[in-house]
Each structure stands twice: as structure tokens, then as C-alpha cells.
Design a protein around this nucleic acid. Structure first.
Length: 224
DNA sequence: CCAGACGTTGTT
DNA sequence: GTCTGG
DNA sequence: CCAGACGTTGTT
DNA sequence: GTCTGG
């Protein structure tokens, strides 16, 4: 699963994703939680980055609160579920991050860990998006992160992991001409373990009220 | 046909 | 909107 | 994901 | 326990 992530810096963002950011005051977010606006790159060739609410609200929803339950979509069934099926066909996106958090359960306790690329580069989660129209006519854009089975790095931490797309797959995922759901699903595997790293962090990150560089700091487990 | 759901993870 | 369950 | 609330009527 | 909010 993926219920919290980070985008601690936007340095190199435009070069990395070959687009312009029109937001002048981009602040680092060390503790990105569901319901917040997250940076997305859509399959609409807009050459722009947008910010969509994390927690997908299907366009047919009567109540936007459904989005609270839609923060992840299982890769295995994303082509079958009513909430995601048409999104897979037509509304795919990248959700940009530089790390994500998982809580490792040990009996009654949960210890947060941060997972990044070894290169510490920005990356894109495989995502889906939708636009919901409220009764008053207000449009709300939202998105969800696709999950898959864990690789060997993630296995000790959790039984699911978010799909990170290899860089060369990003243009394929964002190609509107691709509609073969079987092919699209084949892109949604675990990221190569040798390119990832993980470390334990402080429970500081547990509360969404805490949003600072402390979220990224490794806990020295040798003290225990 | 209509009504009602539409989700994931993890725990018991 | 679309699928499942009754 | 975790933290925190979980209620109503009526008054300021 | 379960839902909402962030």
C-alpha cells in the first residue's frame, strides 16, 4: 500500500519530466497525505504539471467522500473495478515523488520507514485520475496510486508496494493511443529492487501536522 | 428488471 | 457510468 | 497511511 | 469499533 509519501524538493523537476511548472511558490512536502493536492502529470500532452487531490472521486460519484477510500488501486484488478476501469483506458497519470513511507508492523507497534531510489532522484508513481463535478458545478480533480506485490526490499516492511514506473515506461503510460488494458497491466510490476533503498525514520512522520525535514531523518536503530 | 455498490490493507 | 446481486 | 473524533439544540 | 480529516 502507499498512504504517505514525500516530495522534499522540486529541484530538477522540469528537466526530469520535460515540462514547465507554472506554480511560483512550490513548497517541499515531507509528509504528503491522502486528501492533499499532489503533483501529477497527465496523459494529455499538456506539457504541464498539475496538482490533484489524492483519493480518486469517480466522475459518477454522488458524494465526494468516496475519495477517502480510493487512495490506492490494485494493479491486479484495475481493469475490472468500476471505479478504475475507464480511468485505466483514458485517464492515466504520473504522481511525482522522491520517497514514500511504509509502517512496519511488529506486534502491537508500527515503525515508519522511508523508501527512495538509491539515486535519490525524483520518480513517478503509476496513477489514475478523474474529474468530479459537485452539485454547485465546482470541478474537483483527483487521483489514486496503483499498488502491486512487494519486491525483496519491501517484503519485510509490507505486503504491497506502490508502482514506480521505470523512466523509459513513463511515455508509454502517458500515451493516449495505448488502450490495451492487458498491455497496460503488464507495465505495473514491482520496481527493480537493486535501484531502491529503505531506512527507518522517526514516528514524527506519523502525524500529518508534522511536516519538516525531520521526516526524512534516519533513526539510528543501533541505539536500541 | 431494479437496487445498490463502486476500495484497500490487514486482522480476527 | 457500469457491474453485481436478487 | 495515522490521528482524532465519535452529538444535538440553540445561543453568542 | 469505525469514520473523517489531513
Amino acid at each position: 500500500m502507499c498512504g504517505r509519501f514525500s516530495i522534499a524538493g522540486f529541484e530538477g523537476f522540469e528537466e526530469r519530466f520535460q515540462l514547465k511548472i507554472d506554480f511560483p511558490d512550490l513548497k517541499p512536502n515531507y509528509n504528503v497525505a491522502p486528501s492533499q493536492d499532489v503533483p501529477v502529470i497527465l496523459n494529455r500532452g499538456s506539457n504541464q504539471c498539475a496538482f490533484f487531490k489524492w483519493g480518486l472521486i469517480p466522475y459518477w460519484a454522488k458524494d465526494p467522500s468516496i475519495g477517502h477510500k480510493m487512495i490506492n488501486a490494485r494493479a491486479e484488478t484495475v481493469d475490472e473495478k468500476p471505479s478504475f476501469k475507464t480511468c485505466l483506458q483514458r485517464r492515466r497519470c504520473l504522481i511525482v515523488a522522491d520517497g514514500f513511507y511504509e509502517w512496519k508492523k511488529e506486534g502491537a507497534t508500527k515503525r515508519p520507514h522511508r523508501i527512495t531510489l538509491k539515486s535519490q532522484e525524483l520518480f513517478g508513481f503509476a496513477g489514475l485520475w478523474d474529474t468530479w463535478k459537485s452539485p454547485t458545478g465546482e470541478l474537483i480533480n483527483s487521483c489514486t496510486i496503483i499498488t502491486t506485490t512487494p519486491n525483496e526490499l519491501m517484503e519485510p516492511l509490507h505486503n504491497r508496494m506502490p508502482v514506480i514506473l521505470p523512466r523509459d515506461v513513463e511515455p508509454v503510460w502517458l500515451d493516449q493511443g495505448v488502450v490495451d488494458s492487458h498491455f497496460l497491466k503488464s507495465l505495473l510490476g514491482p520496481y527493480p529492487v537493486e535501484l531502491m533503498m529503505a531506512y527507518e525514520v522517526s514516528p514524527f512522520v506519523n502525524s500529518v501536522k508534522n511536516n519538516g525535514p525531520e521526516c526524512l531523518v534516519a533513526v539510528d536503530t543501533t541505539l536500541f
